[in-house]
Design a protein around this nucleic acid. Structure first.
Length: 677
RNA sequence: GGCGGUUUAGCUCAGUUGGUUAGAGCAGCGGAAUCAUAAUCCGCGUGUCCGGGGUUCGAGUCCCUGAACCGCCA
């Protein structure tokens, strides 16, 4: 009987691009979903962008665009990255949708009605320049323990942990100014009221991995659960709370509700679907896939909220570990902070899908992407074993076609067919490493069969055409079985196998019966070996883009950098201070008739200090527009005798030249004579 | 500090409820083959199963204890 399964991956934050660390989760989930669909289950996979919160607000401000523009841009980029890796969501929504607002309101009303809300004053640092409350990570200051300067708001390199309250001389990282203390009323969910349910759901059901169950009981459930601060005062980018004007739902309230919102969006696009049939049903299995960093949100707050609202409870929360690259945390400086889009430019997504699968288990362990192992594994498993099987058989099979009845193969097909249930169970339990091991064993046996029956020898004897056809029939069918088993991991390979044999792979059951009596099409390479150059390019490119790696791309061209590359030579601060840069006011500006490029400027450096300067900006500026404006000049440049007079300095400007010259101006308030530091 | 986790071959890892001489892939060495993308096949393992103690007829597996490493502390 077909199961009804609703699956989610955690919502990526609309503040940065998808990187290969994120992909562990989306590939893990996508493989599981594809497996369920292949098994014939009614499976729905939803996700969305997580769009709210202070970080988005700040980022949008710094880019000078509305939050909605920022999140739209990022969502488009995320969707493209996921598509590139063949992650097939049924719906990819946004938490900033009307559907989500409705869902939030519904759950909020239930929490309110059950008497779970508390109201308490919260004292928080407030940035008066940026006009926002500051989360811990937006504050830096001097460590109260060891006195080290410029430490984060909640912990120090010395190992001390504290709250921003204890920080000496706190500074806002947003505006750089000193924040002040402000008190605001926040709304809290009294989680302790849900204790009985949470004790049972986390400890007695099968919803969590054992180590997660232990972690929760040791870390949280052994003492009263603290109320959860669920609102934020304006200004905040999010949804305003309907019955509490001026307060917004905290991003962690509306983010998981985005799972429901996204389902609702999907239902609206379908003909006969109601979101209630997914979210208010005991017939539905709800499966969440998340990373270990957000464990408590999904194992305490979230099930409690669902319970209060009378909604479908998670059947299982599948929690995975982090990704390290070459044994270390992903790092921009070593080129291992790799964006999905960077990878896709140079390597086939099949490799990463397979490699992650081969490393994943049902445990919370971190997995490591060592590029050396990555290449070795993909080459030997995918190319040497699986693809090679097709490659070495298809050419002969193309001539013979497949036999009408399945020949004696020593029980190989039947053995692999029987293995189907064990492989399926491993998929079901997220033991993908085991899945790939079992499948590779099938491939080994199949390759040995081909080796032992040497179709290349049979081919030479026309009398042995039937034998040849039989060997090909077996080889092709053993390959096809593997393609079926690998289909959740390598959907593209399954398609190619289907095309080769004129029989698309549509069901797990396709591995149970041999394919017979059809012709075989011309074989073309399914997949090439992993290109070492591709790996190198990915890493070097990830180094280059490090500055913007975690930010939305600004859309700025790199043309100027290419025209004038950054200087390699480092200078000491002393070198810089030798240059006396000053604010200057242009008192006079006139054309120099004999010169093609020059204007003559008289600059005031304040008081009676004057400089006569010849500047090559004639093509870009009209002299009368320059008079009275402030510019930056080099005040201690060695005077230089020119044909038209003595030039006593330089005006600072950017641009390639000609009409494209841009003088620098200070912000208002600067006075002639001020030095630049 | 408290809590959770990990420690098995050079590397990555399997080892179900305790049960024969602890396994696989990769890497390495030797050979065969030449259909296949230098792919394939055969052969080659003296591992303090992190240390110490215990329970047991029997411990990689259970208990106690110590060490190292990773993570979490809302």
């Amino acid at each position: 009987m077909s199961r009804r399964i609703l699956v989610t991956s955690a919502l990526p934050y609309a503040n940065g691009h998808i990187h290969i660390g994120h992909l562990v989760e989306y590939l893990q989930t996508d493989i599981w979903v594809r497996f369920q669909k292949l098994r014939g289950n009614d499976c729905l996979y939803v996700c969305a962008d997580d769009t709210h919160g202070t970080s988005i607000m700040i980022r949008a401000r710094s880019e000078g665009i509305p939050e909605t523009e920022l999140i739209d841009k990022m969502r488009t980029a995320h969707i493209a990255d996921f598509a590139g890796f063949q992650v097939a969501f049924d719906n990819y929504g946004s938490t900033h949708s009307e559907e989500n607002r409705e869902c939030c309101a519904e759950i909020w009303a239930a929490i309110r009605e059950k008497g779970l809300l508390l109201e308490k004053d919260v004292e928080q640092l407030f940035d008066t320049v940026a006009n926002t409350f500051l989360a811990d990570r937006f504050v830096r200051g001097t460590c109260p323990k060891c006195g080290k300067k410029d430490q984060p708001g909640d912990n120090c390199v010395c190992g001390a942990a504290y709250s921003p309250t204890d920080l000496i001389d706190p500074v806002s990282t947003i505006s750089g100014t000193k924040p002040e203390w402000r008190t605001a009323s926040h709304l809290f969910v009294d989680l302790e009221q849900m204790r009985e349910f949470l004790d049972h759901w986390t400890q007695e059901t099968d919803a969590l991995q054992p180590e997660v169950r232990h972690y929760l009981s040791g870390q949280f459930l052994h003492e009263p659960l603290r109320p959860w601060d669920i609102s934020r005062p304006a200004p905040y980018f999010g949804f305003e709370i309907p019955d509490s004007p001026g307060n917004y739902w905290y991003v962690w309230f509306d983010a998981p509700i985005g799972y429901i919102g996204s389902t609702k969006e999907w239902c609206k696009k379908q003909k006969n679907q109601r979101y209630e049939d997914w979210w208010k049903s005991d017939q539905v299995e709800l499966h969440h896939f998340i990373g270990k960093d957000i464990t408590y949100f999904h194992t305490l707050f979230w099930p409690a909220m669902l319970k209060v609202a009378g909604m479908t409870l998670p059947k299982k929360v599948h929690i995975h570990g982090f990704l390290t690259v070459n044994g270390e945390k992903m790092s921009k400086s070593t080129g291992t902070f790799i964006l999905a889009s960077t990878y896709l430019k140079h390597l086939d997504p099949s490799y990463l899908r397979y490699f992650y699968a081969s490393k994943l288990s049902s445990r919370v362990d971190d997995i490591d992407l060592s590029f050396e192992e990555f290449a070795a594994k993909c080459d030997s498993d995918l190319i040497g074993n699986v693809v090679n099987l097709a490659s070495r058989t298809a050419k002969f099979a193309q001539q013979t076609g497949l036999s009408a009845t399945y020949p004696e193969d020593g029980g190989l097909f039947e053995e692999a067919a029987r293995l189907g249930e064990e492989i399926a169970e491993a998929y079901e339990n997220c033991e993908y490493g085991k899945v790939t091991r079992l499948i590779m064993e099938c491939g080994n046996r199949a390759n040995k069969f081909v080796e032992d029956h040497a179709p290349w020898v049979l081919k030479k004897d026309p009398a042995k055409i039937d034998q040849l056809r039989d060997v090909c029939t077996i080889g092709m069918n053993l390959f096809r079985q593997i393609a079926v088993y690998l289909a959740p991991i390598l959907p593209k390979l399954a398609e190619q196998a289907g095309a080769l044999l004129n029989a698309p792979i549509t069901s797990w059951e396709d591995a149970q019966r041999p394919l017979l009596g059809t012709k075989v099409n011309e074989y073309k390479h399914f997949l090439n070996r992993v290109s070492k150059e591709g790996i190198e390019r990915i890493m070097s490119e990830s180094k280059e883009t490090e500055v913007n790696a975690n930010q939305p791309t600004t859309g700025d061209s790199d043309e100027s950098l290419k025209a004038e590359p950054l200087l390699e030579t480092k200078i000491a601060i002393d070198d810089f201070t030798k240059v006396d840069l000053r604010i200057a006011r242009i008192l006079e500006a006139e054309e120099v008739p004999e010169a093609r490029k020059l204007l003559r400027l008289t600059l005031s450096l304040g008081g009676d200090e004057r400089r006569n300067v010849f500047a090559g900006i004639k093509a870009a500026y009209d002299p009368k527009d320059l008079v009275n404006r402030l510019v930056v000049c080099v005040a201690n440049l060695e005077p230089r005798q020119m044909k038209f007079g003595l030039s006593e300095g330089m005006v600072v400007a950017a641009g390639p030249g000609g009409k494209d010259i841009f003088l620098l101006s200070p912000d208002s308030g600067a006075q002639p004579g001020m030095r630049l530091h």
